[in-house]
Design a protein around this nucleic acid. Structure first.
Lengths: 108, 108
DNA sequence: TTCCGTAGTTCAAGATCATTGAACTATTGA
DNA sequence: TCAATAGTTCAATGATCTTGAACTACGGAA
């Protein structure tokens, strides 16, 4: 058995770590992709194409530790999903407005 | 005459640079302090106590470049203010919800 | 049940970025 | 004109990020 993923309780999530996680362009991309699909995505699907796997792994770990992403092993792959509802309840408007803002930026 | 401050036009401000600027704990503190006072604050007033001036200078430059802060020279000092209204219009809810979230965090 | 392919993790090293002391510029007031 | 105040710039050190290489775990094929 591999060592299981650790996810912080939502009340231990800090706005600092959320901002830190979202401030990286690669991680923001991942979060945007996760927010679009309703079901979870594995790491390679969620990450930008051609991102080395070691880098993927690192970014997902930060997203998990920040409380933004929930990861679950399914056979050989890891299925990742945004913790939308929880985060929205803990920090109302933060992630949703950032996602809205970053979709807008893409359209210009 | 010193070289004048450069402030990006609000439409050139990106969500990426805003997040990057706010993700640093020192800069988030500065922004919080600026958001409380209605009039501008000079650099030393707005920055956490005991932060070296060279570091202050660096953080204010990033806040300016991100489009979050407007700086103006007044005699020997620099008066800094949040570009609240502009940012709120460009990225509705982003900065306001982050400020709200970070005030909440402090209360616990 | 062994072997192979897929998916992801860990580690260490090089590359990149942040912090700060020291020296500097600009402005004001004595 | 001099000294004090406020902030800037630069270079060096220290911290952090990225990634190739080696590894683990699981599932499917034979």
């Amino acid at each position: 058995m591999q060592r299981p993923f650790v996810h912080p309780a939502i009340e231990d999530v800090t706005i600092g770590s959320v901002l830190y996680a979202l401030a990286d362009p690669t991680r923001l991309e991942i979060v945007k992709k996760l927010s679009r699909g309703s079901c979870g995505l594995n790491c390679s699907e969620a990450a930008p194409a051609d991102l080395p796997k070691s880098t993927q792994s690192h970014h997902f770990q930060i997203l998990r530790e920040a409380g933004l992403v929930k990861s679950e092993r399914r056979g050989t792959e890891v299925v990742n999903a945004l913790r939308c509802a929880e985060i929205e309840k803990r920090f109302p408007g933060v992630v949703s407005s950032i996602l809205k803002a970053s979709e807008k930026a893409k359209k210009r």
